[in-house]
Amino acid sequence: MFQGADIEIIERRTTADDQPGFLVPNAIRINGVEVAVPADANIQIHEITNGDIVTVTLTLFARSISIRHEVSA
């Protein structure tokens, strides 16, 4: 069974006095794990409609990449 990922787009504020306004993300978590994102990367949340699932496009730094076949048990 497949399931979607939990994506958290976070703006960490430096002080409690920071005023709310535009969200400027500086941290991303996928399934609770913070991932490295280039400083100039775009985060795109695609249009959300009643009949569609939510999709997000992120650019991340990869520690490793594995492309392979796998046999289901």
Rank of each mutant, 00 (worst) to 15 (best):
Asp40Ala: 11
Pro20Thr: 09
Pro25Asp: 06
Arg63Thr: 08
Phe2Ile: 13
Ala41Thr: 01
Asp18Gly: 00
Asp6Lys: 13
Phe22Cys: 04
Ile67Gly: 01
Asp17Asn: 13
Ile65Leu: 08
Arg68Ala: 14
Gly51Cys: 02
Ile9Pro: 02
Thr15Ser: 14
Gly21Arg: 06
Ile43Arg: 04
Asp40Tyr: 08
Pro25Leu: 04
Val54Thr: 09
Glu34Arg: 09
Pro38Leu: 10
Pro38Cys: 07
Arg13Phe: 12
Ser64Tyr: 12
Ser66Asp: 06
Gly21Asn: 03
Val37Gln: 00
Gln19Arg: 15
Ala27Pro: 00
Arg12Glu: 13
Ala41Pro: 01
Asp6Ile: 13
His69Met: 11
Glu8Trp: 14
Asp52Glu: 10
Asn26Val: 07
Arg13Leu: 14
Ile43Glu: 02
Asp40His: 09
Ile10Cys: 07
Val56Asp: 00
Gln19Trp: 15
Ile67Trp: 00
Ser64Thr: 12
Asp40Glu: 12
Pro38Phe: 08
Ile53Ser: 06
Ala73Asn: 08
His46Phe: 08
Arg12Met: 14
Arg12Gly: 06
Thr59Leu: 10
Ile10Leu: 14
Ser72Trp: 12
Gly32Thr: 00
Thr15Lys: 14
Glu11Lys: 10
Ile7Ser: 00
Glu11Leu: 12
Asp18Arg: 01
Asp6Ser: 11
Thr14Gly: 02
Ile10Glu: 12
Gln44Lys: 11
Pro20Ile: 08
Pro20Lys: 04
Thr57Gln: 10
Leu23Ile: 15
Ile67His: 05
Gln19Pro: 08
Leu23Trp: 06
Ala36Ile: 06
Asn50Trp: 04
Ala27Lys: 06
Glu34Leu: 04
Val24Cys: 10
Glu34Trp: 09
Arg12Leu: 15
Gln3Val: 02
Gly32Ala: 05
Gly32Val: 00
Thr15Glu: 10
Asn50Met: 09
Thr57Leu: 08
Val71Glu: 14
Ala62Lys: 07
Ala39Tyr: 11
Ser64Gln: 14
Arg29Leu: 14
Val24Asp: 11
Thr14Pro: 01
Ala27Tyr: 00
Ile45His: 07
Thr55Gly: 02
Glu47Pro: 00
Thr49His: 09
Asn50Tyr: 09
Glu34Ala: 07
Thr15Ile: 09
Ala5Ser: 15
Gly21Ala: 05
Met1Cys: 06
Val33Lys: 10
Ile43Ser: 05
Ala5Pro: 05
Ser72Ile: 15
Ile7Trp: 04
Glu8Arg: 13
Val54Ala: 08
Ile28Trp: 01
Pro38Glu: 03
Ile9Leu: 10
Ala39Trp: 10
Asp52Ile: 04
Val71Ile: 15
Ala62Leu: 08
Val54Arg: 04
Pro38Met: 09
Ile43Asp: 01
Ile45Thr: 11
Ile53Val: 07
Val54Leu: 09
Glu8His: 12
Asp6Met: 13
Ala39Phe: 15
Val56Pro: 01
Arg68Ile: 03
Gln44Gly: 03
Ile9Trp: 01
Ile48Ala: 12
Ser64Glu: 12
Phe61Gly: 02
Asn50Cys: 07
Ser64Ala: 14
Asn42Ile: 13
Glu47Ser: 07
Ile67Leu: 07
Asp6Ala: 13
Gly32Tyr: 00
Asp6Val: 14
Ile30Lys: 01
Leu58Arg: 06
Asp17Pro: 03
Ala62Val: 01
Thr59His: 07
Arg63Pro: 00
Asp52Thr: 13
Glu47Thr: 05
Ala5Arg: 15
Asn31Arg: 03
Leu58Asp: 05
Val24Phe: 11
